[in-house]
Computed example of a mutant assay.
Amino acid sequence: MQPSLRIGPPPQEGEEESRLLLRFASPRDPQTVAAWVSFNVIDTERQDWARGWAKLKAFTGRTGHARVPYEHKEGAYPLGQWVAEQRRTYGAGQLSGLRARRLEQLGMVWSLADERFQENLAAARVYYDEHWTLCAPRSATALDRPLGQWLSNLRRPGALAEHPDWEEALRAVDPDWNPPWPTDWQRHYAAVRELLREEDRPELLPGVTCHGMDVGKWLHKQRRPAVWQALAAGQRERLEQLGIAPFPPEPQAPATHRKGGAGAFERGLAALAQYRARTGSLTVPRAHVERLDDGTEVKLGVWLTNTKTRRAQLSTDRRQALADLGLDWAAH
Rank of each mutant, 00 (worst) to 15 (best):
D176I: 08
L239A: 03
L205R: 02
P164M: 04
T296I: 07
L204P: 00
L219Q: 00
L205V: 13
Q235D: 05
L170P: 09
V289Q: 14
R223D: 07
Y189T: 02
L304P: 13
Q235Y: 14
L239F: 10
H257Q: 02
A190Y: 15
G280T: 14
L239S: 00
Q229P: 05
E250C: 03
A230F: 09
D294G: 05
L242C: 05
L239Q: 00
P182G: 10
D200T: 07
L196Y: 10
G261R: 07
R238F: 10
Q241I: 04
A191Q: 14
W177Y: 06
D293Q: 10
P225T: 10
A190D: 13
G260Y: 13
Q252R: 08
E198A: 13
K259M: 04
P157A: 06
R187M: 09
P251M: 03
T279A: 02
P225S: 06
W303N: 11
L160W: 06
P248V: 05
P225C: 13
P225F: 12
R258M: 04
G295V: 12
P246E: 02
E162T: 11
E240K: 05
L282S: 10
P248F: 12
S281C: 09
A262G: 01
H220E: 00
T279H: 13
W228P: 03
G260S: 05
V227Q: 01
V208G: 03
P180N: 04
A253N: 01
R197V: 06
E290H: 04
L219M: 13
A230D: 03
P206A: 03
P175A: 13
A161W: 07
A191W: 12
R224P: 06
A270P: 04
L205D: 00
E162H: 01
E194M: 15
G243N: 01
H188Q: 04
I244Q: 00
V173T: 07
C210K: 09
A255G: 07
D293A: 13
V215A: 04
P285S: 10
L196N: 01
Q241R: 05
